[in-house]
Amino acid sequence: MSNSTSKQVVVALVENKPGVLNRVASLFRRRNYNVDSLTVGRTHKGHVSRMTIVVDVARTDVRQIVSNLYKLVNVIDVKALTGEPHVSRDLALIKVRTDDVESRNAVTEVCDRYPARIVDIGVKYAIVEITAQEDLVEHLIDELRPIGIVELVRTGVVAMGRGVRILDTDYEPVNHLQNAGDLERYGV
């Protein structure tokens, strides 16, 4: 499934403001970039969110994607990670049919061979959780498929450069809401 040659991982630090995800999504749509997955979450700094975007660059130069992302006013910094040492993880929750001994054993056996575990088990179904590199997640899904997957959810890839490759910002937000009322600041 994962054709690693045409996939690129791009990470972006963005201002944690309403509408930023919409701007990024709009960019990808109007430039006809092919998004595999896009995840977004807050960082250790409340005013900064981080996006990990996996794009198919078969048709597009990744430099174009990076420079266009960077043009968005709310995007603080962007970096293409592919080609550099990095850690990437995808998380999946997979609900499989386990309504007989055979299937229960099969699921347990498959999970043993992956960094996966069974996080919920009932009479009819079990939920398997895996956190791993994307291709490993794909392989697990392929192995569970014949047993009977009934529901599946994935977070999409998150990634981080190894070692000294740090994508961070020293930007501190200007709080207009505070400042506007703070007249002393202006000597009033």
Binding site: V14, E15, Y70, L72, V73, N74, V75, I76, D77, T169, Y171, V174, H176, N179, A180, L183, Y186, V188
Partner: peptide
């Protein structure tokens, strides 16, 4: 009070 001073846009 008009916001004098520099504009700070981290991503711009």
């Amino acid at each position: 009070v008009y916001p004098e001073g520099e504009i700070r846009l981290p991503g711009y």
